[in-house]
Computed example of a mutant assay.
Amino acid sequence: MEPSTPKGLAMAAMTAVYGHFDELSPGEADAWVPPSSPGAGGHRGRYLWTDAFGVVNFVTMAVGTSSEKYMTLAKRLVWAVHDVLGRTRDGTARLDRATDQEPLKGGLRIGKTTESGPDCDGQYHHYLTLWMFALNRLSVAAKDPAYNDLAIQLARAIHPHFFVEHAPGQMHMVWKISTDMKTVLVQSQGNLDAATGFIIFKLLQDTAEKQGRGKGLLEKEVDDYAKVMGRKEETHPSGDPLDLGMGLWVSHIYPDEAWSSEFKGRALALAGRLISKDSPTLNRPVARRLAFREFGACLGISCCDAMSPELQAKVEAVLDFWENHVARGFEEELRPISQVMYAAARNPGAFRMSYLT
């Protein structure tokens, strides 16, 4: 793999997080334990958002090279995340409600380094849905329904805890809940949480039907998201690069959904301005720019089939800027998340629905 190609640059970024995995023999891959250092950051070396990107990137490598080794590494990373973030912080027990037979019934911790305080550990809806997507892509690529089954198990487990009654008969979503899922930590609703839940849960349900697991397995949950979306304005894309990019990515999964088509049209127009060379966002001092947020925008744009050559050139200019910047300008604490998102932006692969069809 040529180091200067998009795939080579993506491989280098993944190596910075997960070590020299490319040198492993098939037998060594079978016993691989993802490193805690450099690792994904977070608690005990695992951070749910970063490792979700890691799994999808490994699936991209596996399909792109027809190498079973990368598929094995994706499965090993899934095991490690469930073993660390599916347990209490001391690692002695699974989270409440979870068992060895149903390891995701207690949800998954974010992997924050602190147990309490304003940025403490807990569970985020948008992290959990991204992890469900990673399990789904692994399930489809590996032709193993067990991973999509796990995603559905997680979906059912966390869903009711992110919905609270705002008024009699009216539910709204919350941003963050405690690790044991008993307490709401942030009352506000994430900008695209309902739309993301609707799309990802629908994807899990449709995959389960194709895999012969049953029909309508998440019908109630999908309906709940649709009701919340009907009461909240979900079609206005945010000017935040990461939020904009992840919205574009979600919208491309089911492009013919009414929400998706409306959001995508508005978001692509905004994206073109956001990553242009005269954009205020890109003209801030490097110290005030967050690389991973810009990579989110680049990934979302790259997942859209309607991307113009002009927009593609703007995406490549952003990625080249960070590649050429000294050490890519990544802050130490944000280095793992920046690396895996850079890898995905360079080589979107399995983040694109067309990649596995």
Rank of each mutant, 00 (worst) to 15 (best):
L356N: 10
K314Q: 15
S260H: 02
E332N: 03
Q211W: 04
Q312K: 15
N191G: 03
G230C: 05
A141F: 07
N191H: 14
A297F: 06
K143M: 13
P309G: 12
G41L: 08
D144S: 10
D305M: 04
D320E: 14
H126D: 08
L138P: 11
L242K: 03
L128W: 04
P6I: 03
A146K: 15
P168Y: 10
K202F: 13
V186L: 12
G272R: 13
A40F: 07
F163T: 00
F133K: 10
M171N: 11
H20Y: 07
L270C: 01
P103N: 00
A345I: 07
G247S: 02
L218E: 11
A226S: 14
Y18M: 06
G169H: 02
T357F: 10
A297V: 01
E333S: 14
E165W: 03
Y124I: 05
Y225I: 04
R97D: 02
G216L: 11
T114S: 09
A167C: 08
E316Y: 11
A12Q: 15
P168L: 05
E28N: 07
E233D: 13
G169N: 04
A194T: 09
D243E: 12
A167F: 10
A62T: 03
P34Y: 05
T60P: 08
S354I: 01
L217D: 13
D119W: 08
G64V: 05
L128I: 14
V340W: 01
S178E: 07
D121E: 08
L150K: 15
V56P: 01
S238I: 00
V140G: 07
T72H: 13
R156Y: 12
T357N: 11
T183Y: 01
V222K: 11
V228T: 05
A291V: 09
C303S: 08
Q153A: 01
F351T: 05
Y254E: 08
A134R: 08
T114C: 00
P237R: 06
V78G: 08
H172V: 14
H82A: 10
T183I: 08
R137T: 11
A313E: 13
A350Q: 10
K176H: 05
E102S: 09
L242V: 02
A291L: 03
A297H: 06
F163K: 10
S4M: 12
R94I: 02
L248E: 02
